[in-house]
């Protein structure tokens, strides 16, 4: 059920490829999802599954060439982003969509004062003068919880700790009050105690500013902590999407089962052996024509290797691409739902 009035971003059948000497890498192979106003959508998946490429295509940050958007549409707030010129895109980037990157050490400019990096967007997009912009920058630093912002605003990134740099990144991303914030592994490079601080901050700011968030991560703990809806990606396609509870308590795709079972949990007492997903993800130079997970799936049937499964609706907001949903498929016990009841 897609409520048209609430939808902020709609991505439809997006395909992104990179042309390399070795051939075409099909990084994203037909991805469809939407983000509602004010909600948090988590995109989870392993490295190389195309989750970062998806988010970078929304911002048009893919280097072209070698990258190119082959097909599909990205509709943001009624506008088609794939059709915008570079110039037009500049007014969207930073002003209507903000982005936080994984590595706060390398994504800030080391030769510019932190305050100036926040002011840049304010001066360009909101046409503030220098003095106003600096005041606003101090206000933003205060908002993200940096002590003595009046002093910090004139310091360089190397004078900040890792957690504070990530806070500064968030301040830059949110300075122009964007409607959408894309956070690409925002806490992966941070320690757990600092991660808890940053997640808390993001949740807080979302409440205050009503920003929608796309959170890209591989950490299911972080997802459970902060997301409203989840999309599970594998080898360039979304294999399952649903609300947080549906994905964690009633997942339907064997890959989602595998992900949930392969992480040990702190609060379980019995020392069960981990259930790993055997094998490795497929090569995206020549992706399999059927379901990409078939080679690692213990329930794989002949059809799985032949044809990519259609989208099946499980409930209102829960969709899955898997042949096990077909009426002719054998019944397979859901190991995650079962473990929970057991």
């Amino acid at each position: 059920m897609v409520d048209k009035n609430r939808v902020l971003l709609e991505v439809n059948n997006l395909k992104v490829s990179f042309d390399t000497y070795a051939g075409e890498v099909q990084a994203v192979r037909g991805v469809t999802f939407h983000v509602n106003k004010g909600e948090t959508l988590a995109i989870v998946g392993e490295s190389g599954c195309g989750k970062s490429v998806t988010s970078q295509s929304i911002m048009k940050l893919i280097p072209m060439p070698p990258g190119r958007i082959k097909e599909g549409s990205i509709k943001f707030d009624g506008r088609e982003l794939t059709k915008l010129t570079d110039k037009q895109m500049e007014s969207v980037r930073g002003s209507e969509i903000g982005m936080i990157f994984q590595d706060p050490m390398t994504s800030l400019n080391p030769t510019m004062k932190v305050g100036k990096q926040i002011m840049e967007g304010l001066i360009k997009h909101q046409k503030l003068n220098k003095k106003e912009a600096k005041e606003k920058a101090i206000e933003m630093l205060k908002l993200v919880g940096i002590p003595t912002p009046e002093k910090r605003v004139d310091q360089y990134p190397h004078e900040f700790s890792g957690g504070m740099r990530q806070r500064a990144m968030i301040a830059i991303a949110l300075a122009c009050n964007p409607k959408l914030l894309i956070a690409d592994e925002p806490t992966t490079a941070l320690d757990v105690t600092i991660q808890a601080q940053i997640l808390d901050l993001m949740r807080d700011l979302q409440e205050k500013l009503d920003t929608a968030i796309i959170l890209i991560t591989h950490d299911l703990g972080v997802v459970a902590d902060i997301a409203n809806r989840v999309a599970v990606m594998y080898a360039g396609v979304i294999v399952e999407t649903g609300t947080l509870d549906e994905i964690f308590y009633n997942p339907q795709h064997p890959y989602t089962w595998g992900l949930l079972q392969s992480v040990p949990r702190l609060d379980t007492k019995n020392k069960e052996r981990l259930v790993p997903i055997e094998g490795t993800p497929p090569d995206l130079f020549s992706p399999p024509k059927g379901c990409p997970f078939a080679a690692r799936c213990e329930h794989a049937m002949r059809i799985c290797k032949e044809e990519f499964p259609e989208k099946t609706q499980v409930s209102d907001n829960h969709y899955v691409h898997c042949w096990l949903q077909h009426e002719m498929a054998p019944k397979v016990e859901n190991p995650v739902a079962e473990r929970r009841e057991g």
Binding site: S161, V192, A196, Q197, D200, D219, G221, A224, D225, Y249
Partner: peptide, 23 residues
Amino acid sequence: LSAIPIPDPEVERNRKRIILEGD
């Protein structure tokens, strides 16, 4: 221990976290 997110939405909703100040 309290800073580690647990991959279970229900546990996360009911958990009270000790957030350490500073670095």
